[in-house]
Simulated assay, not measured.
Amino acid sequence: MVHNIFKGLGIALITPFQEDGSVDYKALIRLVEYQLDNGADFFCILATTGETPTLTIEEKSKIKNLIVDLVGGRVPILLGCGGNNTAAVVQELQTGDFKGIDGVLSVCPYYNKPSQEGLYQHFKAIAAATKLPVVLYNVPGRTGVNLKAETTVRLARDCQNIVAIKEASGNLEQVDEIIKNKPQSFDVISGDDALTFPMVSCGAVGVISVIGNALPREFSKMIRLQMKGEYDGARKIHHRFTDLFSLLFVDGNPAGVKAMLHEMGYIENVLRLPLVPMRIKNMQRMSEILKELKI
């Protein structure tokens, strides 16, 4: 039986760029070490927050190898591997280099909007193509299709190496339905920073976090307190960051967290088109909040 090892604070890792738009590998190394030193339990690399669609094949390979070498087995690594062409994802899983990778995160097919049966067959084919643990990723706001609770549970029961789902539907009723009906070996992971506190309270085992790029110590403390049943302390941390949660995504992801990391002195505030940096007025408000929080 395959079990989920992706628990606690997972970092949805950004890709830092230099002013000329090239990947800033030195900044990436500093950032990963900072996160490891401050409570990161696992990394999720080359996924949405990493601006992966804008990276070249060579850049993706270099980033993956750099992170694998840098982490050196200290925490698990989850690699983004998904798309809306099932055969292409299967081929990547069968022929790609997954050395040092502990599992794959596979997003629901986007744009072509498959039925629930289509989603089931897509993920079943992906699970059959790899021996690695598979974490499903449901984010209907980006993909245009919702992986319903009954389909998630069906996949969890039928595919041994589908071990978890990153749930970013924003639907707590759906999350609760999955947790209520899932097999014991299957877990729910929050895909929404702002909903992590209520989701963990319902039985989720952690988060794949955007804000964790910048504030790993604080966010991991919240999750650890919840896991110990200390909800009052965890709730205070959750409420402390409410304003940041709402501001983080107002100009798209990862514009908000890149602005935050720039303010903290870790990276240049550079994104690749079609994404652009956070608007000045929102950056100013973020700077004010960080000062209020003494960060």
Rank of each mutant, 00 (worst) to 15 (best):
K7S: 15
L9H: 09
I11Q: 01
A12Y: 03
A12P: 03
I14T: 14
T15G: 10
E19L: 15
G21T: 13
G21R: 08
V23Q: 08
Y25D: 06
A27W: 03
R30S: 15
L31Q: 07
V32T: 14
N38R: 14
N38D: 05
G39T: 05
F42D: 06
I45C: 03
L46R: 00
L46H: 03
L46Q: 02
A47T: 12
A47N: 01
T49W: 02
E59Y: 09
N65D: 14
V68N: 06
R74Q: 09
R74P: 01
R74E: 10
N85I: 09
N85R: 01
V90L: 04
L93D: 05
L93V: 14
G103S: 14
L105W: 01
V107L: 05
S115I: 01
Y120I: 04
Q121W: 11
K124S: 07
A129D: 09
L132K: 09
P133N: 13
V135L: 12
V139E: 09
G144F: 09
A149F: 11
T151G: 01
R154M: 01
A156K: 05
A164V: 15
A168T: 07
G170M: 13
G170T: 04
D176N: 10
N181W: 00
K182E: 04
Q184W: 03
Q184E: 15
V188F: 02
D192I: 06
T196F: 02
T196W: 00
G206A: 06
S209R: 01
G212D: 03
A214T: 12
A214L: 04
G229P: 07
H239F: 12
L244I: 15
L248Q: 05
V250N: 02
G252W: 01
G252Q: 08
K258I: 13
E263T: 12
M264A: 10
E268I: 04
L271S: 05
R279M: 14
N282D: 06
I289A: 02
I289Y: 04
I289K: 02
L290H: 08
I295Y: 06
